[in-house]
């Protein structure tokens, strides 16, 4: 499926840039590489339409800061955040700042490329009304009140122990609820759960 626009890859690690370039090329996407958010912002006024794939941990200007700066510009490029490890609060923060998705390294190529092509074709903005989003919303609706509380806690980046304290139930019980939430949401990991929650509209400021 041919799409318009470039993929702007921002990562301070040369191997990450090069390998992403290769992967995107193999998927028929054209990439332009930046070794820092600063150099990307400098080039931004001249850039055409496209989608940003940026690392979150970078010297000088990190991924979250980049999101804030982008909000201030009138160019609204969709941005996908890559993270080295499943840092839920960081991911939630990124989503709140307008990232359309966040993915953990190393990532599934299908998911990355799917997200990028969707973004490039402008589908990301409309996704909320999509069947996928509706499906996720129905999964959220199937949760019991207690399970919903646990989901809220997990998405807020709280540990089992903290959630248990908030609702005054034992951490062991929370574990059971948590397992139920994962099953009902059809999430295989906490980060996927957070992603679903965001797609399902649970997390908008």
């Amino acid at each position: 499926m041919p799409v318009e626009g470039l993929v702007y890859v921002i990562d301070d690690d040369p191997a990450m840039r090069d390998s992403l370039d290769f992967l995107l090329d193999a998927a028929g996407l054209k990439a332009r590489l930046f070794d820092s958010a600063v150099s990307f912002l400098e080039a931004l006024p001249q850039l055409g339409p496209g989608c940003i794939v940026s690392d979150v941990r970078m010297p000088n200007l990190d991924g979250l800061e980049l999101l804030k700066r982008l909000r201030e510009t009138n160019k609204s490029l969709p941005i996908i955040i890559m993270t080295g490890h499943g840092d839920i609060p960081l991911a939630v923060e990124a989503m709140k700042l307008g990232a359309i998705d966040f993915i953990e390294k190393p990532f599934e190529d299908d998911r990355l490329i799917g997200t990028i092509t969707a973004a490039l074709s402008g589908a990301a903005q409309r996704q909320k009304g999509d069947a996928v989003a509706a499906d996720i919303a129905s999964r959220i609706a199937s949760l019991s009140p207690r399970e919903r509380q646990v989901l809220d806690g997990l998405v807020a980046g709280l540990s089992n122990k903290l959630i248990a304290r908030d609702y005054d139930i034992s951490p062991r019980t929370i574990e059971v609820y948590r397992a139920n939430v994962m099953t009902k949401m059809q999430a295989s990991s906490i980060s996927e759960l957070v992603r679903f929650a965001i797609r399902g509209g649970l997390l908008k400021d």
């Binding site: 191997a15 390998s19 998927a27 190393p106 190529d109």
Partner: peptide
């Protein structure tokens, strides 16, 4: 994080090659 970088790069090269 440090270890994730080469692993992610490898994964990218492999998946790209597969394509």
């Amino acid at each position: 994080h440090e270890l994730n970088q080469p692993l992610a790069a490898i994964s990218n090269y492999m998946k790209g090659s597969r394509r």
